[in-house]
């Protein structure tokens, strides 16, 4: 599950060490925007050492490196590679300003070298692409399919709004089409689609409303800037008791039909086919249940 992926400023020991205690689904150690240019070296060392020496509960662990058009990204990757050699939980790379399939391929090649150098299996590192320009959004499908490592797409926030020659409003209506385009591209490519963070950290009602909107669109989760945002997003993505109960009946009925050699089955008077079963299984996953165990 990637309902919540929380950014942790790369030069802040307090957050790097304690962020996982707030139990987001994932952590993003941020070496990019959260770190000023004259502190990149210190942050890189700190992130490498914290990643190497700590466990982070059940959180998925990723690092947002600096963009490929900067002088920093190769050193960032060296630090991540060294950490991953010690702590295999470190396997996510957030790629800012993913502009083209060529840039993803370039990162893919460098990650392959990094895996060899650090005795990691090929494919260890996953890539989460941040689409921060109109050009990147337009090429979202090409970017998502440029490498088998690509696991998720996320729209940019401020950079994207600026590139669209607009500003980020409270409702973010200017990003409506962007979200829909990225959702379709991500689904077509078979990768997760994860929304940008909600920047107004004290406006939890606004966050809830936006999260309900992106969940209805089909998004898998959302980036998080502050621990207070986590529970709000989890609540929106957690299915209701009624939905869980219905999903259990669907999955169990489907399993029973398979066991008896039946091709199709009805639940609550409605024919249950493969998409409905898939949806029910996904919903059980969101509820923290194992669909296969639930059948037993």
């Amino acid at each position: 599950m990637r309902r919540t992926m929380m950014y942790l400023p790369g030069n802040n020991p307090n957050m790097l060490l304690k962020g996982y205690l707030f139990r987001p689904d994932g952590l993003i150690f941020d070496l990019e925007d959260a770190v000023s240019a004259n502190q990149k070296d210190a942050a890189r060392i700190l992130v490498r050492n914290v990643l190497s020496s700590q466990s982070f509960g059940d959180c998925e662990v990723s690092v947002r490196i600096n963009a490929l058009d900067t002088e920093f990204w190769r050193d960032d990757l060296c630090a991540v590679g060294a950490a991953a050699a010690i702590n295999r939980r470190v396997n996510g790379i957030r790629m800012p300003k993913a502009e083209s399939k060529e840039s993803v391929i370039a990162l893919d090649d460098t990650l392959s070298e990094l895996e060899d150098k650090n005795s990691l299996p090929q494919g260890h590192f996953k890539i989460f692409c941040l689409l921060e320009s109109a050009n990147a959004v337009w090429k979202a499908y090409d970017i998502a399919t440029a490498s088998r490592r690509v696991t998720g797409l996320t729209p940019g926030g401020e950079d994207l709004a600026a590139d669209l020659r607009t500003t980020r409003s409270r409702e973010e209506s200017e990003l409506d089409w962007i979200r829909k385009m990225i959702l379709v591209a991500g689904r077509a490519a078979g990768v997760d689609v994860l929304d940008a963070a909600y920047p107004l950290i004290h406006d939890l009602e606004g966050l809830k409303k936006q999260t309900e909107g992106i969940r209805q669109l089909g998004f898998d989760g959302k980036s998080v800037l502050h621990p207070s945002q986590i529970q709000v997003i989890h609540d929106v993505f957690t299915p209701s008791a009624t939905d869980i109960e219905k999903s259990l009946r669907i999955v169990r009925a489907a399993a029973e039909a398979t066991k008896n050699g039946q091709g199709a089955v009805a639940v609550d008077g409605r024919l249950v086919d493969v998409p409905v079963i898939k949806r029910a299984m996904y919903l059980l996953t969101l509820a923290g249940l194992d669909a296969e165990e639930a059948v037993l």
Binding site: P13, D41, A42, I45, L46, R48, N49, V50
Partner: peptide, 17 residues
């Protein structure tokens, strides 16, 4: 109140600088 991992990191950064 830095943990050992933080002290080591800051020392390394300071030494490299």
């Amino acid at each position: 109140g830095a943990l050992d991992v933080v002290l080591r990191s800051r020392l390394e950064a300071a030494i490299l600088r």
